[in-house]
Amino acid sequence: MKHGIAAALAALTLAACGSGQPPAGSPPHHTADGYQNLYPFHQPGLGDILRWRWEEWTGPEVVQRPERIPRVQPDLAWLATNRSTASYTWLGHASGLLQLGGQNVLIDPIFSERVSPVQWLGPRRYLPVPATLAQLPRIDTVLISHNHFDHLDRDSIDALLAQPGGQPQFVVPLGIDAWLRDRGATRVNALDWWQSADLGGLQYTATPAQHWSKRSLSDTNETLWAGWAVKGQGKTVWYSGDTGYQQALFTDIGRRLGTIDLALLPVGAYLPRWFMASQHVDPLQSVQMFRDVKARQAVGIHWGVFALASEAVDAPLDDLPAARRQLGVSEQAFRLLPLGGTLRLP
């Protein structure tokens, strides 16, 4: 992949330095200057980034074939009136609209052209958004997993703050609340791992993830990262957030949450493994994660739109089926939705 400077901006979202030791009596993932993972974690430094970039610049060109990725027009009329059917609509990358308990929940919204500190440079969309924010039903709650630019997008947040009918409720990991309030958000719930908030008839619970945070050159791990469990309408939907693979972590999450009706699991941005393994699962690990938490079904996300790693944006179309075959999981159990597609839960 020869992205040049644009790829270097993507690398800023994927590497950092470590944190201090936690103060006495604090949770183990708290540190003197922020947060850390529950399990050993390698956070790549500048040398790792330069090695990754050198391998890309000197290696074979990655052929991007976004035309392979299935796309459908979202059923906007149905989404606008739906208040009874639990559903998930994939809006690209990690963004999705969850409809549960009569609420419209938007997850890690990215409607911008690029995932970058600026919109004139950085990783650019290979596929357009399937629906604009104005075309979606009014959003009740916004879930944010962490502060990387491909999950927390300034322009998308500003548009949500200005939506007709008033601001949505934001549910975020610790520390991101300050960023939101600086932008004018007034309805913010910031949660630590395993804390919950009951809003609009739904329960939101932050779950641990094996990842990190960074939005500038000087704020490494100052805000928390998380996955999210949303419970309501007799169902549990779990979004893992970005995460490396840790079996003990996922089996514990599955045990604590109980029956997970739908898991939203990342299947993209995973190569090269020597660089990405600590922070992003690959498709095989994602299918294993699905088995670890014992979810009833899963949808693969975090792929298909932005080239943030060394595999092609369409690679999960081949690598996820191979992973399912290897682990004996059916396509019905762990699927890829077309961009704009909706899964209605029974």
Rank of each mutant, 00 (worst) to 15 (best):
K231S: 08
G232C: 03
Q233I: 03
G234Y: 08
K235V: 09
K235E: 05
T236Q: 04
T236P: 05
V237I: 07
V237L: 06
W238R: 02
Y239Q: 01
S240R: 01
S240F: 01
G241W: 00
T243N: 02
T243W: 03
G244R: 00
G244C: 06
Y245N: 03
Y245E: 03
Q246N: 07
Q246Y: 04
A248K: 06
L249E: 01
L249F: 01
L249Y: 03
T251R: 08
T251M: 05
T251S: 08
D252R: 03
D252S: 08
I253K: 00
G254A: 08
G254C: 07
G254I: 12
R255Y: 11
R256F: 06
R256C: 08
G258F: 10
T259D: 13
T259A: 13
I260K: 05
I260P: 03
D261S: 09
D261Y: 13
D261L: 06
D261Q: 07
A263W: 09
L264A: 11
L264S: 06
P266W: 05
P266Y: 11
L271P: 02
P272C: 15
M276I: 09
M276V: 12
A277S: 14
A277T: 14
S278Y: 11
V281L: 14
V281D: 10
Q285Y: 11
Q285P: 00
S286Q: 12
S286M: 14
S286D: 10
S286W: 06
V287M: 13
M289H: 15
F290N: 00
F290Q: 00
R291I: 11
D292I: 02
K294D: 12
K294M: 15
K294Q: 14
A295R: 04
A295Q: 02
R296I: 11
V299D: 04
G300Y: 11
G300E: 11
I301E: 00
H302L: 14
W303Y: 09
W303R: 08
G304N: 03
V305L: 10
A307Y: 02
